[in-house]
Simulated assay, not measured.
Amino acid sequence: MVYFDYAAATPMSEQAVLTYQQIAKNYYGNASSLHDIGGQAKDILDQARQLIAVPFHADSREIIFTNGGTESNILAIDTLLRSSPISGKKHIISTKMEHSSLFFYLTHLNQLPDYEVTFLSPEKDGQISISALEQAIRSNTCLLSIQHVNSETGVIQPLEKIGQRIKGKDIAFHSDIVQSFGKIDITSLLPFVDCMSVSSHKIHGPKGAGAIYFSEKLALQPHPIQTNHEFGLRPGTVNVPAIAAFAAAANEIFTDHQAKIDHLHYIRNLFIDRLEQENIPLLPIITSHQAPTILGCVNPFVQGDYVMLEYNRRSIHLSTGTACSVNQQKIPASIQPFILNQEEGKRFNRFSFSHITTDEEVEQFIKVSKQIFSKMKGERRKYEQEVNR
Rank of each mutant, 00 (worst) to 15 (best):
I86Y: 02
F173H: 05
P206N: 04
T227C: 03
V362R: 09
E278T: 03
E134L: 14
I184Y: 09
S325M: 14
N140D: 15
N327L: 14
A16V: 05
I146G: 03
I77D: 09
P85G: 09
I137W: 05
T95W: 04
F365S: 04
C142Q: 10
S87P: 05
S100V: 15
S175Y: 11
R381T: 15
V362K: 11
I372G: 04
P222I: 06
A16E: 01
P158T: 14
K96S: 11
A250P: 01
D114A: 14
Q50E: 10
F246V: 01
A7S: 11
Q258S: 09
S352M: 13
G168L: 05
R314M: 11
L282M: 08
V240E: 00
V149Q: 10
A7R: 04
H99N: 14
H229F: 06
C142L: 08
S369Q: 07
S215I: 02
P113T: 08
S175N: 10
L189T: 05
L143E: 02
N388W: 12
S60D: 06
Q258P: 03
P284A: 10
S60V: 02
F119C: 05
I86F: 13
A76R: 09
L189S: 07
R350P: 04
R138L: 12
K183S: 14
V240W: 00
N341I: 12
L133V: 07
H108N: 09
I372A: 11
S101A: 15
Y311W: 13
N30Q: 00
Q127R: 15
D176N: 09
I93K: 08
P300V: 12
T287W: 04
I272E: 01
F214A: 02
R138H: 11
E71Y: 11
I77M: 11
F192T: 08
S121L: 03
I372D: 09
G321R: 06
K346M: 12
T357G: 14
S334K: 05
D256T: 01
V149T: 14
I44D: 03
R381G: 07
C195S: 13
S325P: 07
A291M: 06
N341S: 10
I243Y: 00
I64A: 10
Q290P: 08
T320L: 07
K183H: 15
K382T: 15
I316W: 09
Q277Y: 04
R389Y: 15
T227M: 02
I93R: 10
K260E: 06
Q336T: 14
S139Y: 07
K207N: 04
F56V: 03
I177H: 07
Q179R: 14
Q371P: 05
V178S: 12
K202A: 08
I253M: 02
E71H: 09
L109R: 06
